[in-house]
Design a protein around this nucleic acid. Sequence first.
DNA 1: CAATAAATTGATATCGTTGTCAAAGTATCT
DNA 2: AGATACTTTGACAACGATATCAATTTATTG
Lengths: 336, 336
Amino acid sequence: MSVTIKDVSKDAGVSIKTVSRVINNEENVSESTKEKVLRSVTKLGFKPNKSAQSLRSKRSYMIALLYDNPNKSYLADVQGGILQACKRTGYNLVLQECNHEDESISSSIIEFVNDFKIDGLIITPPLSDMDEFLDDLDNENIEYSIIAPSTKKASSPYVSSNDYDASYEMTAKIIEYGHQQIGFVKGHNMHSASSLRFNGFINALDDHGIERNFDWIQDGDFSFESGFNAGENIFSLKNIPSAIFASNDSMAAGIMKSARMKNINIPDQLSIIGFDDSPTAQQVWPSMSTVKQPVEEMAMHAAKLLITQFDGLTEKTVSKEFKSEIIIRESLQQLI
Amino acid sequence: MSVTIKDVSKDAGVSIKTVSRVINNEENVSESTKEKVLRSVTKLGFKPNKSAQSLRSKRSYMIALLYDNPNKSYLADVQGGILQACKRTGYNLVLQECNHEDESISSSIIEFVNDFKIDGLIITPPLSDMDEFLDDLDNENIEYSIIAPSTKKASSPYVSSNDYDASYEMTAKIIEYGHQQIGFVKGHNMHSASSLRFNGFINALDDHGIERNFDWIQDGDFSFESGFNAGENIFSLKNIPSAIFASNDSMAAGIMKSARMKNINIPDQLSIIGFDDSPTAQQVWPSMSTVKQPVEEMAMHAAKLLITQFDGLTEKTVSKEFKSEIIIRESLQQLI
DNA sequence: CAATAAATTGATATCGTTGTCAAAGTATCT
DNA sequence: AGATACTTTGACAACGATATCAATTTATTG
């Protein structure tokens, strides 16, 4: 029926083991036999049977993406990036949704990896910030690669974004536009990005000699509702800021709605700035100024990072920090 | 190392074939041996090795989701639904992005299925509308289940939504709210949903004795930009409608932006209605009236449909049409 | 109660690879 | 030239399940 390693070995006049050596790029095969085998491989259109390879070598050629309640567009971007890396290397992507509050997360993931012989994991926030969980994976010798970790464990490969710098830079830009009274809405405190973004904001204020006003600094959890509530809180004050910087776009949209309901004109009376450049950012009016991270690229790199760990074929990829881009749209008003 | 079928057979005092029979729920196993085997299985914590099963039985326990450039939240919802069905049945989900304009789509998907021994496919629009492609799959005896097909092929299982009815009903609601002058923006003409939604609109107009005005009916392709352009076209007319119904939320947001830029007040001067209930629908201001389809549920059903095809264990699931929900939010103004 | 049919069970081959280990071939060194 | 080391190759076992088919047990029949 379909072409097997036996057919190739017969055609090339070598043993099946030699064919195996060639297709796995093992050392100690003479150039001439290698060529001979490869000719037969292409001639017959041979493709190794994944199940047989997997059974014998304990590798599945599958990597899994672990996520916990991410926003949908982030998830789609991450997947897109990973899939690009997979396509080039013949790996397959399997999805695994988890709950970071689940006590048994370590054991259930370990079980999943063992059951399906998953070759490695790609871990996204907030799971990437759970050091205990990562330690458990280490103990089981499970390979993984992390997107946006907090503690940059030297031991495991990661990709990160410059959340701090981007937030600092955006804040500086807001100040440069003439704003002196600036509010901030924090993200979910489980995500390490939240504190990075907040610290970037605070330090930019300090460095530019702008006073901090803690009435204008609100807690949020990345949800639209939490942004809306933060807006309600701020707009009930006597003095309101001239700009509010939110840790993500959904919260920024929530603030926008709450401002609208108080008849506060955007951006004339209030500038609103988000983070992430989600699809919503372009679709609201006025369109949202925001920070765009190269999520798809980052995810692709994370996947490459992981795959090169257990794949002798390609040269090792190294951990990398990616730069974000400041996007100024209509929601940020120039005051001077 | 890990528990195999041999260990179980030894523990239960039966042959490995009998163990295999039990775990595959085959007939002709006496109750007493079945019980004996199951006791050993749980006692030893035996789990069949997927690779070995796959190698011997030519099944991979993996199903693939085929998609082509869907909007990100739709994709996430579909995945979520499929994953729920997978979790319960021990299947795994693999992602496969395609391009419906690719000439070689049939052959590349067939190759993918054969390479990875994918057990079946779940096919989303617009791929679900490509009859030739589906015929090619049929010829290769590849199992699939379709989400929202145009031609309801009796031969293959599908889930569908009542796009026509939902659109009719929403239009009737708009009329009920007192609107007599209603515009419409069509979706991408590759999607069968586009014409269903349009026909529902037109028939509702006719049935309520409302005149069609073709200046107010614009082509779109589901993108924000196409909605924006449709808005620009409509708003450059002498007479503008009092409500515009767009075939999805992104286009509705585009219309909203274009209206805002012409200083048309929403919803006082113009009502805008979308379709899909995407995250954006709630995050714009005023929040968008829209039609919500139970995408996650539909996808879950599609997955069950597929899995029960090749899985003797569970009873067959049947094709089903799902009902949409009309959601009235701030963007639709009551005129009377 | 023997003869036959039906249900249950097991010994062993098999799926298509990679792993082990020894044999054969080449190169290098006294 | 012979001894030694290194490179290249292949025969066959192994991975852990399912498939085949014959053997055994149990039920049914005349």
